[in-house]
Amino acid sequence: MRIFKVIAEDFLFYMAMAGRMTIFFFRAIAAAATPPYKISEIIRQLDFIGARSMFVILFTGLFTGMVLGLQGYHLLKNYGSVAALGAGVGLSLVRELGPVLTCLMVIGRAGSAMCAEIGIMRNSEQIDALECMAIDPVRFLIAPKFIATLISVPLLICIFGVIGIFGGYIVGVQIFDVSWGGYFQSLYDSVGWDDLRMGLWKSLVFSLLIVWINTGKGYFLHMERDGGFGAEGVSRATTGAVVLSSVSILVMDYLINALMI
């Protein structure tokens, strides 16, 4: 009997959490979509999520492109078609690696910080204080993060793709013997609007997942089952948010591929 009780309690807890998170998502979307907008806070978040992630995105994008160039070159050389390197690098980056790796980097750099920031505000009663001042904390704290993530992550994904293609160019054209015309022509011929559209959809869906899960885990820190209070509670919630959002992105990546291919 005891095991049934535990299963039932688990089920009810996760259903309640799913319900809270769903309502939170729609409240945040509604607050982000309707005025008044907190312009200065949105700019601050754009700086934090977007501008300050630039270096890590440039760095990972460049080396991802270079690795793709290196691996792709040696693979294609066996078939005598090294000119197709541009297509391989471009398609990999635009459809898959750009969105996924950029988002994983953003989660590690900004998502965890969002969760910790909101969680600490919850712990120190700052969110309760906002509510008691008749200020909607979702509109005040969460909506600017939703807007800034939805703007900055797709742009970071574009930058990742461009710098990755440049990385593939450095390895394929500058180090090995691929012609630059062949590299870019195969890229131009292979990467079409459908690929860009898939990349765009992924960037939008992944952005929402990142900001929703990371802010939501912080916002409902006090409702965590194993006690969300104290530094350990914040640390546990942050780790949970990073793991959950990373896994969600990989699962969602598969689902979008399955739907759009």
């Binding site: 505000m121 120190s124 009663e125 700052q126 309760d128 204080a129 906002l130």
Partner: peptide, 8 residues
Amino acid sequence: FQNAALLD
């Protein structure tokens, strides 16, 4: 609030 809950 007990700890004043100022936005830090």
